[in-house]
Simulated scan of single mutants.
Amino acid sequence: MDDENMPIGRLEIAGLDVSNLLWEQDDIELAVRELALYSPFREHFKEALELANYATSFWLEDGRYPDRAGSVVATVFRLRDEIEDDASCADAGSLPSVIRQTLSIDHDDADSQLVATYALVQSIQAVQVLANWLFETELYVFDLDADLIAQMQATDPKKYSELAEKERLKDPAGEIDARESFRAFMGDADKALMLASLYRQVEDTDVSKGNFKVANFLSEALSKAFSAKASQRGAAAGKANRKPESVKQQDAAKLFERIRSAADRHISANPTISELDLKKALVKKERIASEPTVKKYLILGGYLPR
Score class of each variant (00 low, 15 high):
5 N>M: 14
5 N>R: 13
9 G>L: 07
12 E>A: 07
12 E>K: 12
13 I>V: 09
14 A>Y: 03
14 A>P: 04
14 A>V: 02
16 L>A: 11
17 D>L: 14
22 L>S: 05
23 W>A: 15
26 D>C: 13
27 D>P: 00
27 D>A: 06
27 D>T: 02
31 A>M: 01
35 L>N: 08
36 A>S: 10
38 Y>K: 08
38 Y>C: 06
39 S>W: 13
39 S>H: 14
40 P>T: 09
45 F>M: 14
45 F>H: 10
47 E>P: 07
47 E>F: 12
48 A>P: 13
49 L>S: 06
50 E>L: 12
52 A>G: 01
52 A>Q: 00
53 N>E: 14
55 A>M: 09
55 A>L: 08
58 F>T: 02
58 F>E: 07
59 W>N: 04
60 L>E: 01
61 E>Q: 02
61 E>W: 01
65 Y>G: 05
67 D>Y: 13
69 A>Q: 11
77 F>P: 07
78 R>Y: 15
86 D>H: 05
87 A>C: 12
89 C>Y: 13
90 A>Q: 03
92 A>R: 11
95 L>V: 04
95 L>E: 06
96 P>L: 14
98 V>A: 01
101 Q>E: 15
105 I>D: 15
112 S>E: 15
112 S>V: 14
115 V>K: 10
116 A>G: 00
117 T>S: 04
118 Y>E: 13
120 L>N: 07
120 L>S: 04
122 Q>L: 00
125 Q>I: 02
125 Q>M: 08
126 A>H: 13
126 A>Q: 12
127 V>E: 09
128 Q>W: 05
129 V>C: 14
129 V>D: 10
130 L>R: 11
131 A>M: 02
133 W>I: 04
133 W>C: 07
134 L>Y: 10
134 L>F: 12
136 E>A: 11
137 T>N: 12
142 F>C: 05
145 D>N: 08
146 A>G: 15
147 D>P: 04
149 I>S: 08
150 A>K: 01
157 P>C: 03
163 L>I: 01
166 K>D: 05
167 E>C: 11
170 K>R: 14
170 K>D: 13
170 K>Y: 07
170 K>S: 14
172 P>H: 15
178 A>P: 09
178 A>M: 10
181 S>V: 05
188 D>Y: 00
189 A>S: 03
194 M>R: 12
196 A>N: 06
198 L>W: 06
199 Y>V: 00
201 Q>A: 15
201 Q>L: 14
203 E>C: 00
210 G>T: 13
212 F>K: 01
215 A>E: 13
218 L>S: 10
219 S>F: 14
225 A>K: 06
226 F>G: 02
231 S>W: 06
233 R>M: 12
238 G>F: 11
239 K>V: 12
241 N>Q: 04
242 R>N: 07
244 P>R: 09
246 S>E: 06
247 V>Q: 11
248 K>V: 00
252 A>V: 09
254 K>T: 10
254 K>S: 10
255 L>I: 09
257 E>T: 12
257 E>W: 11
258 R>H: 06
267 I>W: 08
268 S>N: 03
268 S>T: 01
269 A>Y: 08
269 A>R: 03
271 P>L: 03
273 I>C: 13
275 E>Y: 03
275 E>I: 01
278 L>G: 06
279 K>I: 15
283 V>H: 14
290 S>L: 02
293 T>R: 05
294 V>P: 11
302 G>N: 08
304 L>V: 15
306 R>C: 02
